[in-house]
Every structure is written in C-alpha cells, then in structure tokens.
Simulated assay, not measured.
Amino acid sequence: MTRRDSLALTLAGLGLTFSARAANATTMQNALQIIQAQIDNGTLHSAVLRVSRGHQVTEQAFGKAKVDSMFLLGSITKPLTAMAVMVLVDRGEIRLSDPAVKYLPEFSEGARKNITLEHLLTHTSGLPDQLADNNALRARHAPLAEFVKGAVSTPLLFSPGTKYHYQSMGILLAAEIVQRVAKTPLPEFLQEQVFTPLGMSRTVLGLGKFQKEDMVPMQTEHAAPEAGAGDPKAREWDWNSDYWRQLAAPWGGAHSTVDDLSKCLSSLMHPDGKVLREATARLMTQEHTPKLEAHRGIGFAVGPAGLGKGCSARTFGHAGSTGTLAWADPVTDTTFVLLTALPKNVSGALILDPVSGMVSTMS
C-alpha cells in the first residue's frame, strides 16, 4: 500500500464527502512532502509528524528518526511544567491567585509581592525571558538553584499584570513553587503525577532513566542565541551537551515523542480525572489575558496565532525554539505534533508553519 493510499484510508472514516476526503488526503500528502523535501536537500536531519482527528491518525517519521524517537522539546516543556502546577491547584493545595511570595518568601522586593502564580504562567509577571548572565551561567554549568536565585532578584520589566512579555524565568519560579509545596523534585513530580498516569512512557524532564544517546541530536549550528547560536565554544553547554540534557530546565529541558505529546493534549481536550478534573483542564486551556496583545492560557498559547491559520479560537498549544510545535483544537478534535531536530529560527518558516497551516485547514 502506498502512503497516499494509507492517507486516503485514514481519512475515509471521518464522515466526509468523497471530494472532501480526497482534498484532505492531498493536503496531508503535500504537508508530508514539505518535510521530506527538507530531508532530501540536507537541511533537516530528523523529524516526526503525528496528526490525529478523532480516532483517525497519520504518523510519519523522516530522515534519521523513528516514530517513537525522543526529541528535545524546548519550550513545549513550559505547558508540561504548568500541568504540574495545575495538579496542585486541582488538589486545592495552591491557587492561581496566590502571590508567589507566599511560597517564595525571598521574592518580596517592590512589585514582586504583587506577582501571582497566574502571572508567572501567563508571561505577565514582568520577569525577563532569560537572565542577563544566562550564557555565563550555562558556560560554568550552574545548577538550577542559581537560575532561581537570579530570577528572584532580577529587575522587573514592567508592573505585574500590565503587559505580556514571554518569560522563561516566570516558568522557572512556578516550577520552584511546585517543588517547595510538593516537597518533590519537579522531574519526579511530573513523572508520578502526569507522565505515568497518561501512559507517557517516553517523556521525561531532563534525562531520567534514559541516556543522551537515546535522544535525537539537535542541529546546533542553527541554535538560538540563548543556546549558543551554533558557536563551537558553546558545545559544553548547548542543546546537545551533557549539561543541558541533564539540567531538567522547566522552561526547555523536557524530552518526548509525538505519541506521548498527543496523549497529553488529548487528556486536556477530554479530561478523565487521571491527572486533572474537567474544570481544572478547562481553566488551563482557556484564555487568561483578554485585554493584552497575546492570547495566553496557563502555560499555553490560545487561538490560531502561531499555531495554525485554520485553528479555532479554542485551540491551545506551544512551539519550541528547538524546532517543535504541538497543538490541539477541541472544535475539530484534532491534535498536531511535529518534532524536528532543526531549530525554529530555521524550521519555523520552512517546515513548522506551512505544515501546521495546511493541516489546520483540512475539512
């Protein structure tokens, strides 16, 4: 059976007219070809795409990858960290409206006392994305505790809640709060409370039981500035280094597969109580920043912007600078996960955006 035939069969059960099924099969084939073209010309080394709509699934590995290959997620780690926070919210142990200083007493100077957990998780706290000495910290293999210390004392960019500014350091402090409340390291907490209940057997924050060799190598010659920008001098702390793969940075250090991420997204579209109750899952995936320029849920972007031009306003998802994109659209019951080894500053325009755009417009 050819791949085109397989795609046609996949789409046949969707209750669509023959012409709509044919159009969707052609669209998916074109989307797959976008990825394959970059493999063929040597720009992309590895990628896996998984699209599910209802019970219908299309899954394809490219280049050196297998369908169950584990990729460095980059910032898709952020909503996973946010899920850990929401587990505690679900239990009533913390509230999104709680001031962060309640759990981080050292985080009390000036306007910091007004920053809530919700601010940390919606990128509205006023904290910067990265610390000014981020690269220096990584170059000397600083532990996460040093990043926390820096985030607690770094100057705020604006008054909490007044603006949107994407900020990894807010996610870091939210992770620190989870660890202090749960009295458990975040990688263990996520494993026990999120990954294992959802059957995400090949997802881990840091490396856990896996080895670096189990992970798809990044094409670091195209890395983002905060990850060394491809500088050979950064090889001891870039995305492929032992240091970064083991650090378990709660804003960018998780590894996963397309199947596991699809399970995670589906669990939020169709919560069954294994991790979060329905009301808590809805709270996480609804918009919390209606008066600001960015549409943010708890840990997620909400709406089509940056996810897929055909996505509904209820879509939630996230991209990663490592070359990753994942979203779910409850209106069409669709999950989309595309993991690549090519950093987003190259793969975004070449692969992630056009492939997601095509898939999101399917009938």
Rank of each mutant, 00 (worst) to 15 (best):
R4Y: 10
L11P: 00
T17C: 10
F18A: 14
A25P: 02
T27W: 09
L44A: 06
A61Y: 03
A61D: 03
L73D: 03
L73G: 10
L80Y: 00
A82N: 08
M83W: 00
V87G: 12
R91A: 15
D98Y: 04
P99Q: 09
E106W: 02
F107S: 07
L120A: 10
L121W: 12
H123V: 00
P143I: 03
A145V: 02
E146K: 08
V148M: 02
G150L: 06
L157E: 12
M169I: 06
L173T: 03
A175F: 01
K183E: 11
L186D: 06
R202V: 00
V204G: 11
L205C: 05
L207H: 11
E213F: 00
A229M: 09
D242P: 02
P250D: 10
S256A: 12
K263W: 01
L265N: 11
S267V: 01
S267N: 07
D272P: 05
V275I: 12
T280S: 14
L283T: 15
M284H: 03
T289I: 06
T289G: 10
I298K: 02
A301G: 08
P304F: 09
L307P: 07
K309T: 08
F316I: 05
G317F: 09
S321P: 00
L325E: 03
A326F: 06
T340I: 09
T340P: 07
A341V: 00
L342I: 10
V346M: 00
